[in-house]
Design a binder for these strands. Structure first.
Length: 595
DNA sequence: ATAGGGTTAG
């Protein structure tokens, strides 16, 4: 009699302990006590214990327990599924969905959202679609949480269209801040910054003035960074402060990154300087910003500061510091980092560090050393392709045909260039009917920024972006004619100063941009950054810094032209290209022509 | 007792 009353009072207490437990030892101890009391075998107790083991990552114990249950309910299955999904075994999690149906336990909305999120972790749209179809059949696809998980899953798998379709298909009242935020991050993560910014504007006007939360705000900030929209970025920064998210660590990193990617290093610094205890990611972000701005010494100061403050660097941090060295010509410092990172910081140099070092040596013209390092580096596959391609271009820059041939030979072992190889791969999948894999290749390319896009440049005027392609002035609208006249006039003045390049002529190394359409009386092949600059000069007030973004690297001719025009027009220009920033002022560039 | 979204690189 006494034992029964003890059991009745002790069990809820033990369950409570289980809920708060975060480590294996305490879960196991409480589990043992429940066994002693004799209440561990009830389905609900078992579920609690399974969930607790899963929370602390011991899925094997959870599964043992699960196997020993005489009967299991939907919670038992979903808890185990969730455990596998969050501990790096999402495929196993999804397979449990089949098993549970075979054993006669119908899944609920919790089960489907868990299964869908496992597919998201796998970035597997094919599997995701199957789970989606089942959810549809069982009537759970319209559940707000399941739908939101679906949006995220399709986005992570690179299928933005379907993600959008699910979002559109949600009834307006079902859309909450999480579903809006999920759609927003799909755009941001798939390099669709414009769409993300547009959706955020829609959210502000069409969601009955729902307050934006920190998840959405960080996605929008990232979107602004991606497309270099300083004006929108500033106003989102204002929104962040108004809604009290100015102290959120993730958003703050996003802001540091956003300002630096918008060519406003000073603001990036300002945001960073206000952070009391910057995280590794914060430090990495500002180091990379300084690196892209050619401020190698500054980047090293930040790095030393973080070490002094006991913030441990990671692999990305070291890569950032090495990039800073590379772009500032601090070659020996960079090499020293490569060789000491293992012993000093316990970070094993990987392919990207070697590629960076080879690139650094090549840039500095120390090509023999670059070759030696490239041969030493244990780099394989795609990484090796990157490494040798970068060395090849260094050889070309330094006109070392002999070495270029050797590098080209190594590159040719891979048959195609990176983007080319991936496109071929994707097409192969498509013709084999494996459209899911083809889509995955594309999403993979998008994530890594290897796109077969034509070169373009854009400029933001009063929060509106104007995108220019080579040879096409039309985005300048009614002022197109004036832009061409201005560029013509500038070309004349540049010639007087000894400019040898061309603006409208065909150049030898012109391959970095696709030719625009000719005809319509436009100059053929004028590089997009020059068109954007010409338009900027016409429509912005005297003295204002003009910021131009470009999706590829700037060519030497354009670089020369920008220097001269900054002198002629007495203006400052900031150009963001694929890798870094160029700040043109009074006839010279912040990169000192070393890039 | 089981469910959904955000950060640093190239």
């Amino acid at each position: 009699m006494a034992a029964t009353s003890t059991t009745a009072t002790v069990t809820p207490l033990l369950i409570h302990l289980l809920r708060g437990a975060t480590d294996h030892a305490s879960v196991a101890a409480t589990h043992a006590k429940l066994l002693k009391v004799g209440t561990a075998s009830a389905v609900s107790s078992c579920n609690h214990i399974i969930a607790a083991y899963c929370r602390c990552g011991v899925t094997a114990r959870a599964h043992d327990l699960f196997d020993g249950m005489p009967e299991r309910d939907v919670i038992s299955w979903t808890a185990l599924m969730s455990g596998y999904s969050s501990t790096g075994r999402p495929r196993l999690a999804v397979s449990l969905l089949r098993d549970m149906s075979h054993s006669g336990v119908p899944p609920n909305a919790f089960t489907f959202s868990t299964a869908v999120s496992a597919c998201a972790r796998l970035a597997d749209a094919g599997l995701g679609r199957k789970v989606h179809a089942r959810a549809e059949v069982e009537g759970y696809a319209s559940d707000a949480v399941v739908a939101t998980a679906l949006i995220d899953m399709y986005g992570k798998a690179g299928d933005v269209e379907t993600a959008r379709a699910v979002f559109i298909g949600m009834a307006a009242p079902a859309r909450n801040a999480v579903s809006w935020g999920s759609m927003l991050s799909v755009y941001a993560q798939n390099a669709l910054g414009r769409e993300a910014i547009q959706l955020f504007a829609e959210f502000r006007t069409k969601s009955n003035f729902m307050a934006p939360n920190h998840f959405m705000l960080s996605s929008v900030v990232n979107a602004c960074a991606g497309v270099g929209r300083l004006g929108v970025g500033k106003s989102v920064h204002g929104t962040v402060l108004r809604f009290g998210h100015g102290c959120n660590g993730v958003i703050v990193v996003g802001l540091v990154d956003m300002y630096s990617k918008c060519g406003f290093y000073e603001y990036s610094r300002k945001v960073f300087d206000r952070i009391e205890h910057p995280s590794v990611i914060c430090y990495t972000s500002i180091i990379v910003a300084a690196a892209k701005y050619g401020l190698g010494r500054c980047a090293l100061t930040f790095f030393n500061e973080m070490i002094d403050r006991d913030v441990l660097p990671n692999s990305v941090t070291l890569l950032g510091v090495m990039h800073a060295c590379s772009h500032s010509g601090l070659v020996d410092t960079g090499l020293h980092l490569l060789h000491s990172m293992q012993s000093k910081y316990d970070i094993h140099p990987c392919a990207s560090h070697y590629t960076c070092a080879v690139d650094m040596l090549g840039r500095a013209g120390r090509l023999e050393e670059a070759f030696e390092l490239a041969n030493e580096a244990q780099v394989e596959g795609r990484d090796a392709l990157m490494l040798w391609s970068s060395l090849l271009s260094a050889c070309r820059t330094h006109r070392r045909l002999d070495l270029a041939t050797r590098a080209a030979h190594r590159v040719s072992e891979f048959n195609q260039d990176v983007a080319g190889a991936l496109v071929v791969m994707s097409n192969a999948y498509t013709s084999a009917g494996q459209t899911d894999n083809a889509a995955a290749v594309w999403s993979n390319m998008r994530r890594r920024g290897i796109q077969k896009d034509p070169g373009c440049s854009w400029i933001e005027i009063k929060d509106i972006p104007y995108v220019f392609y080579a040879g096409l002035v039309s985005p300048a609208g009614a002022r197109a004619g004036e832009v061409m006249m201005l560029l013509d006039e500038l070309e004349g003045k540049m010639r007087e100063k000894g400019y040898k390049g061309g603006l409208g002529s065909t150049r030898v190394f012109d391959a970095h941009e696709e030719d625009g359409e000719d005809g319509k009386g436009e100059m053929v092949g004028v590089h997009s950054e020059l068109l954007a600059l010409g338009f900027g000069l016409l429509v912005t007030p005297k003295g204002m810094t003009i910021r131009v973004m470009k999706n590829l690297r700037m060519c030497c001719d354009c670089h020369d032209a920008f220097k001269l025009i900054s002198d002629i027009m007495e203006r400052e220009f900031v150009v963001r290209d694929l890798n870094r920033f160029h700040h043109f002022k009074m006839g010279s560039c912040s990169c000192n022509d070393y890039w």
